[in-house]
Simulated assay, not measured.
Amino acid sequence: MSPRTGRDLDFPTWPQYDGGEYTGLVRALEQGQWWRMGGGEVDAFEREFGDYHGAPHTLAVTNGTHALELGLEVLGVGPGTEVIVPAFTFISSSQAVQRLGAVAVPVDVTPDTYCLDPVAVEAAIGPRTRAIMPVHMAGQFCDMDALAKIADESAVPLIQDAAHAHGARWQGRRVGELGSIATFSFQNGKLMTAGEGGAVLFPDDATSAAGFLRHNCGRPRADRGYFHRTSGSNFRMNEFSAAVLRAQLSRLDAQIAVREERAPLLADLLAAIPGVVPQARDPRCDRKPHYMAMFRLPGIGEHRRNALVDALVEEGIPAFAAFRAIHRTDAFWETGAPEESVEDVARRCPNAEAISTDCVWLHHRVLLGSEQQIHDVAAVLADVVGRV
């Protein structure tokens, strides 16, 4: 409830669960084996999640950051290599690169979709570039046609960071049907969650086999003699997380349908507020799951933007400041940074600079609310914009 206006802003809670999660947890408990090598929940979840996304191979892992690390490692990313990442993204996109000893090269995003700019990507490719990482921001696909063309011509593979894009489609194709490795997160706020967790979609047998070995400490599935064939780590998902995620997946379609219905209404209402510019949608993204409802207030500045977010939260709206540009964090420069200064990167990435200071996002549970609540959100935002 908004304390100023009395509007009903009691949105649906998140995470959501019902008897499906309870049943799954008991099923995992009673099978007598609680890790993936002896139980059946992780195997079943991999099949179901892979089928849902059109992927020939799926591997469930401990979290979304590990999913990125694993996918990058399979592509040969390591010391002496570089990976192109968006300058505007959550820090895990770059840290996964840097944890492998490689250099993360930030490039700019488009000012309307907040997704990787293909022109900037092409300009950044060099002799050490081993991968290009498009991040599907808030469920909005990057320009996969342009990026696929660049990848083909440069022989530099794509790895999709699809942490926001569960169930998304690009011109009728699902994430797993685009021919590249893709990674997902099941962290607590994501569109489906087990608190933590991740998944990697592989396009072929070879990358899938390499991924399984490396996520299992280099050990083959049927090994009994400790013949560890590669380096790796323990990125295995446990049976309880997989059981919860199977239930979460079962309701994802219905939730996306509600968000797809509410999102255009919210975007239209926000666009009618002077100074507010909602995230654009590329029409080729014909199904957007709306991990976040994002909008910009160009020119507002970081201080006023943060004050606006605080005011929205006080009114009962789950609002957040947008990600800080990765080069504006101390973490980015600790290891695996390019040989540039902060200001050098900032000059190359003006859109990321601006978005990180003037963008706000609303939790996707807002879009699971009623149509009236969507109108109420817009009315509260209009009031807050007028007084902050």
Rank of each mutant, 00 (worst) to 15 (best):
N63I: 05
N63R: 08
G64A: 13
T65G: 15
T65S: 14
A67T: 08
L68P: 02
L70A: 15
G71H: 03
L72A: 09
L72Y: 10
E73L: 08
E73Q: 09
V74F: 08
V77F: 01
G78T: 00
G78A: 00
G80V: 02
T81V: 01
E82N: 14
V83E: 04
V85K: 04
F88D: 09
T89P: 00
T89W: 00
I91E: 14
S92N: 10
S93P: 00
S94L: 01
S94W: 02
A96Q: 06
V97F: 06
Q98Y: 09
R99H: 08
R99E: 07
L100G: 01
L100C: 03
G101L: 03
A102E: 04
V103G: 02
V105H: 05
P106C: 13
P106G: 09
V107Q: 04
D108L: 08
D108K: 05
T110F: 01
T110M: 11
T110P: 02
T110S: 08
P111G: 04
T113C: 07
T113P: 04
T113L: 10
T113M: 09
T113N: 05
Y114T: 14
Y114D: 05
C115H: 13
L116R: 07
L116C: 12
D117P: 01
P118L: 10
A120R: 13
A120E: 14
V121K: 12
E122G: 06
E122Q: 12
A124R: 10
I125G: 06
T129G: 15
M133D: 04
H136T: 10
G139K: 00
Q140K: 09
Q140W: 10
Q140Y: 12
F141V: 02
F141K: 03
D143F: 11
M144L: 15
M144Y: 14
D145L: 12
D145R: 11
A146F: 09
A148G: 14
A148P: 04
A148I: 05
K149H: 13
I150T: 11
A151Y: 04
E153F: 00
E153G: 07
S154E: 05
L158T: 05
L158G: 12
I159Y: 09
I159R: 05
A162V: 12
A162F: 10
H164D: 15
H164W: 14
H166C: 11
G167W: 01
Q171D: 15
G172W: 07
R173A: 14
R174S: 04
V175L: 15
G176W: 14
E177Q: 14
L178P: 08
L178I: 15
S180M: 15
A182E: 07
A182Y: 03
S185L: 09
S185K: 08
S185V: 10
F186R: 03
N188F: 09
N188T: 13
N188C: 11
G189Q: 09
G189F: 00
K190V: 01
L191R: 07
L191W: 10
M192T: 02
M192H: 00
T193K: 02
A194E: 01
G195S: 00
